[in-house]
Design a protein around this nucleic acid. Structure first.
Lengths: 151, 151
DNA sequence: ATTGAAACACGGTGTAC
DNA sequence: GTACACCGTGTTTCAAT
């Protein structure tokens, strides 16, 4: 599914501020409000837009400590196994399988260092995990879109 | 700044679907619509909620290739320099300084491998960058909140 | 200080063109 | 694609707790 230029500009406007009125977006991209709405409806139906959410300051939600955990899995671990193992942790914001030495990179938000350590130990103890390597985020420099933090 | 339980439930409801009506959220948390609105307004004023955005399917936007670039910076490079250097790239979705060997981890979305390579080369050529180490995302297993992709 | 009820106005939504 | 009409919802006001 490929979007045309108009669709992209509409999505871009919504990404910046999802509460802009359709009329506002319309005047940006050169369409009337109903035309914009129809496109947004279509984009949602097609799955290009999967929903609307809020950008949150992680610290305000009590998620002060952020880090990345690289997972080195046991041989013959399927991505599905990793996914099922990780989705039970509310602290896991995102996870992807990757190229390179590690098998997956996991982004974790915790309330503090003790909490982060506890999560790390539990993940390291998962049966499919051979070993882990983790780094803590010192300061987020750029977060272009949503905070990425659990809510 | 710490949120109380009611605020957290409101933020959680908005994180799931930022288009729920205030009346809807109110019936969830036991408040009237105006009371919910006032709290949301306050949360925005305090900076706990930093905005509203849209969840996008990166592939639909043409961002098929995702990767992480670790930046090893020259000595005495300030976080501000890294930030200013990276924010000029629309492909950079997020960037953080981190503990460990590397100085920063950068999340990049590109349209394809050639595009990713071009971005990587340009970033590696930045004056503050000593060397880089990058991994490509094979498949995103979990993306709890927004897509994280540029729009 | 924070709430709920009601009045008001704006913008979302559907229909017709 | 636009123009228009309707109605739901956001927003403000106000009295009450």
């Amino acid at each position: 599914m490929r979007l045309n230029d108009l669709d992209e500009r509409i999505v871009h406007a919504l990404a910046e501020d999802a509460r802009r009125s359709y009329a506002d977006i319309g005047s940006l991209v050169g369409l009337s409000a109903p035309a914009v709405k129809r496109r947004v409806d279509r984009l949602r139906a097609e799955g290009a837009i999967t929903g609307f959410t809020v950008r949150v300051d992680p610290a305000a939600m009590g998620w002060e400590t952020e880090g990345f955990i690289e997972i080195y899995a046991r041989s013959n671990t399927s991505p599905g196994t990793i996914k099922r193992g990780l989705e039970r942790y509310p602290e896991v914001a995102s996870a992807s399988t990757v190229t390179g030495e590690a098998d997956a990179i996991v982004q974790v938000f915790a309330s503090d260092m003790r909490h982060f350590e506890r999560v790390l130990e539990r993940i390291a103890g998962e049966p499919f995990v051979e070993r882990t390597k983790s780094v803590l985020v010192l300061s987020p420099l750029l977060r272009r879109f949503s905070s990425g933090a659990p809510a």
